[in-house]
């Protein structure tokens, strides 16, 4: 077997292993549950007031559902990243990874297996959150092409945050650290256009909110799902995703190639 087919075969094996682990130690309800609670909180508790604040003739709770869902989806992806970091840190603490390191297998497959399994889990969590959003009144006004583009963008965002979270799981010396490190990722949509328009923020914060990656990602999703004007956010969001993926990938490779610490 050549290097590529070994990599593909071993990555498939590792993906299967992680799939079984996810079924035995399920985190999916926890991962989907937090954004669902936030969605319901923002729609039913704050939604009336925040919706009125959006401006426009008939602004209210119904309009706010449409506004808040893209931000909630990004929170879902960021929250899943926390689960990924925990899963990776737990795995690295087990002796079996040392065994993998002494076996004639593709070294990259260990990490690839985690990334693929986590990305699949995240997409599933996003699907559950979208279903709940539709149940409480989210009505995307979009055609099949935009749906496909939105799914593609969510996938890119998922891959980007998954690579970073795998790195965070590798860099953590304990499962507790792995659980805390990705926390700031979940806050990014709050400091962007996830819950209120950036135009309503005071000047320095508004500037930060507009340049940080969460805002173009949310605006691009909003544009695709609801047909709102999104300007250059689409290409900017894709560029951010590619850059973050690349950085996360390189960081991950370096961390995994590090000599394991003595135990």
């Amino acid at each position: 077997m050549n290097a590529l087919s070994t990599y593909l075969a071993d990555s498939t094996t590792m993906l299967r292993r992680n799939g079984v682990r996810m079924r035995r130690y399920p985190m999916i309800w926890f991962i989907a549950g937090i954004p669902i609670v936030l969605l319901l909180l923002f729609v039913y508790v704050f939604g009336g007031t925040l919706g009125a604040g959006l401006g426009g003739v008939a602004a209210g709770r119904a309009e706010y559902i449409a506004y808040v869902v893209p931000g909630i989806l990004l929170i879902t992806i960021a929250g899943a990243a926390q689960g990924t970091a925990i899963a990776v840190a737990m795995d690295m603490a087990e002796g079996i990874v040392s065994r993998f390191r002494t076996m004639p297998i593709s070294r990259a497959s260990v990490v690839t297996g985690h990334v693929l399994a986590s990305a699949a889990q995240t997409m599933l969590a996003v699907a559950i959150v979208v279903a709940v959003a539709i149940a409480v009144g989210f009505r995307p006004t979009t055609g099949p092409a935009q749906w496909a583009a939105a799914i593609g963008l969510v996938l890119l965002m998922t891959l980007a945050l998954t690579w970073v979270s795998v790195a965070l799981g590798l860099v953590s010396k304990s499962v507790e650290t792995a659980s805390n490190l990705p926390m700031p990722l979940m806050l990014l949509p709050f400091f962007g256009s996830g819950f209120v328009p950036t135009a309503s923020m005071p000047e320095p914060l508004r500037w930060i909110a507009e340049v940080q990656p969460a805002t173009p990602m949310i605006e691009a999703l909003r544009g695709l799902l609801l047909g709102t004007p999104s300007g250059s956010s689409g290409p900017v969001a894709v560029a951010w995703c590619v850059a973050i993926t690349l950085a996360g990938y390189l960081w991950t490779q370096r961390l995994y190639e590090r000599e394991p610490a003595p135990r």
Binding site: E94, I96, S98
Partner: peptide, 14 residues
């Protein structure tokens, strides 16, 4: 080679 280390190298969830 094959290695059986001091720390259990089995996947406890499988």
């Amino acid at each position: 080679i094959g290695v059986t280390g001091q720390f259990s190298a089995v996947d406890a969830l499988l």
